[in-house]
Design a protein around this nucleic acid. Structure first.
Lengths: 94, 94
DNA sequence: TAAATTTGGTTCATACTATAAACTAGTTTA
DNA sequence: TAAACTAGTTTATAGTATGAACCAAATTTA
């Protein structure tokens, strides 16, 4: 029987965020927004969901006088992504 | 920028159905139900969505006296799946 | 320096999606 | 013939995704 696909990762935007964070060590809100093409509102919500789940950590700081939200994937996030990719392989052609 | 993932295919159950149909030439409702572990109601709805989209064809017949619903992937379904898989590759580690 | 615009977000209402419970229609079994 | 089973469909609800509207501060423009 086909394995479950972690619903938290099986969402286009959240998957995109995690995919980017796996590749680059960290990324800020503005970068993620441009890289994904998402609206700020949607991105804000999905980042919060990933944070709640413990898949990413979010740090708020200032770059000069402007606020900055930086995201990093956590070890749990890495594991979850690896599991997701492995499960997904079962749905894809060999 | 990351490509869009066809929302019709980016759904666990519909993806499972298409994935099975790509592999086997045709499959009936009962088989799909067991192979996916889905409830009949959910499967019925998702099959109808795939049919509406033209990704699968659905044929109703009788095996003896019992009704039988058989599904087959269409050429459009094959193309859509191929495109989906290609788009998805951009989200996965190389 | 006051007003307008931009930046970097968050909140929230709504639209969309997935899901299973309840139902239908018929068949088999006891 | 009544109970239980098969093969589904319909439908109500819960969950999810999305962008419009908002906010506060910074920057630009006039």
């Amino acid at each position: 029987m086909l394995p479950e696909l972690d619903p938290l990762l099986h969402s286009q935007l959240r998957l995109a965020v995690i995919s980017i964070l796996i590749g680059s060590d960290e990324a800020d809100f503005v970068f993620l927004r441009k890289a994904t093409g998402a609206t700020a509102g949607n991105l804000s919500v999905q980042i919060e969901k990933l944070r709640e789940a413990g898949y990413i950590s979010v740090e708020k700081s200032f770059r000069g006088k402007m606020p900055r939200t930086t995201c990093q994937i956590t070890p749990e996030g890495v594991t979850a992504f690896e599991n997701y990719v492995e499960a997904l392989q079962n749905y894809l052609p060999k």
